[in-house]
């Protein structure tokens, strides 16, 4: 065999396409994503909600343009009214229109979900990465702080913080950020502990890469997906918890377009008068159904994101 033959690496891989590999990766992921019927369902649900949120002013024109989140109401009658042409989803006590509340509440739902997960991610990633990468005493201190936060009773702290900050959606978001970042920190830290001893990290260090470079170009790209998967799954959970806090009365005032708030306002009418227990079914069913649908959508989407991004599930 001649020298030339030996020294040329075999061209085993033909160029399949001229696309950039990053684009190819993306297309591959997209194909996997679209193959899964559940992910399509999830995506459809979320897109429909997004459309409702975007076109809220058209679907339910506000009567007070300066404060569209205030649900319009006719009169102060306590008795909720069942669905009619005028109020397609019926009315709450004090005749607030449920349809209007649900439509504008969608905007708030997205706001709550995204902002909670976003801030959680930022705080959790920063602290978890530092703890996992540097290890030793830094790790010890940060992880004990995380333990401390895990020891806080959720509801008690939530109530205390709301008392301090005042009622409203902002307070709920702050509460959930304060108590939510801890899990991201733990996940990213454990992920990095595994990565830290990998050969390619050592190789990068051996070729003189700085800590920052190692973190940003090797560690994070390889570990962030597991956190993103958890994040996409927990958008739904965040909204559910926020609704629960609203229901307990920690949310904004009566008449504010927030799903949890709507259920909370209707609390006294969940069970109808004697003889007709299901008289006010629409009060519980409609907001409950919408919240469940929204959460389900996010969970399906999160599952699909995991299937696409999880390297263990995608390649042999």
């Amino acid at each position: 065999m001649s020298n030339e033959q030996i020294d040329k690496a075999p061209e085993a891989i033909e160029m399949k396409s001229k696309q950039h590999p990053k684009l190819q990766e993306f297309l591959f992921s997209l194909k996997r994503f679209l193959k899964n019927p559940l992910s399509i369902i999830g995506l459809t649900i979320i897109i429909s909600f997004a459309l409702i949120a975007v076109f809220a002013p058209i679907i339910a024109p506000p009567y007070k343009t300066d404060n569209p989140y205030q649900i319009p109401h006719k009169g102060w009658a306590q008795e909720p009214q069942p669905p009619s042409v005028e109020n397609p989803f019926g009315t709450m006590p004090e005749q607030y229109d449920i349809f209007y509340g649900m439509v504008w509440g969608t905007r708030n739902a997205f706001k709550i979900g995204f902002s909670i997960v976003f801030f959680n991610l930022i705080i959790g990633l920063a602290l978890g990465t530092i703890a996992g990468y540097f290890g030793g005493i830094v790790d010890e201190i940060i992880m004990r702080i995380v333990d401390l936060f895990y020891a806080l009773p959720f509801l008690v702290v939530a109530m205390a913080l709301v008392v301090a900050l005042g009622r409203g959606l902002q307070s709920i978001i702050i509460v959930m950020v304060v108590l939510g970042w801890r899990q991201y920190a733990r996940i990213i830290r454990s992920e990095i502990l595994v990565l830290r001893d990998k050969d390619y990290i050592q190789a990068a260090r051996a070729s003189g890469a700085s800590h920052l470079r190692v973190i940003f170009s090797h560690i994070l790209p390889n570990s962030i997906y597991s956190v993103l998967i958890v994040a996409s799954m927990s958008v739904g959970t965040a909204i559910l918890t926020a609704a629960a806090l609203s229901f307990l009365g920690l949310g904004s005032g009566v008449g504010y377009a927030d799903w949890g708030q709507i259920v909370s306002t209707c609390r006294n009418y969940i069970v109808g008068p004697p003889g007709n227990r299901l008289a006010y079914w629409f009060l519980v069913f409609i907001p409950g159904f919408v919240i469940s649908l929204f959460v389900l959508g996010w969970n399906l989407l999160g599952d699909a994101v995991r299937d696409v991004f999880d390297p263990k599930m995608r390649r042999k």
Binding site: P21, D199, Y200, H218, N222
Partner: peptide, 9 residues
């Protein structure tokens, strides 16, 4: 397979 970063070109 361990010494090359799998997410780098």
């Amino acid at each position: 397979s361990h010494s090359l970063d799998p997410r780098m070109l």
